[in-house]
Amino acid sequence: MSELKTIDARNTFCPGPLMELITYMKQASVGDTLELLSTDEGSAGDVPEWINKVGHDLISNEKIDGVWHVKVRKAK
């Protein structure tokens, strides 16, 4: 059964938001949706780029009150 998991990577420089997302994607099951919270401006670019390159599904990517919310579904 799929589930939504939130990864709070706000205010962190190392390992950083994308590295956190990769860690949790490895633990997730196909079909699970993860929401990454990030205050790193770079996340808006490199997170969707990685999702696209590796072949997962980017559901949404929006900035709310200074925090990027990136929702991704594990596709494989």
Binding site: F13, C14, P15, G16, L18, M19, I22, G42, D46, E49
Partner: peptide, 10 residues
């Protein structure tokens, strides 16, 4: 390297 630059700390 796993992310889009050569180290996770910008």
């Amino acid at each position: 390297y796993p992310i889009g630059r050569i180290h996770t700390i910008e």
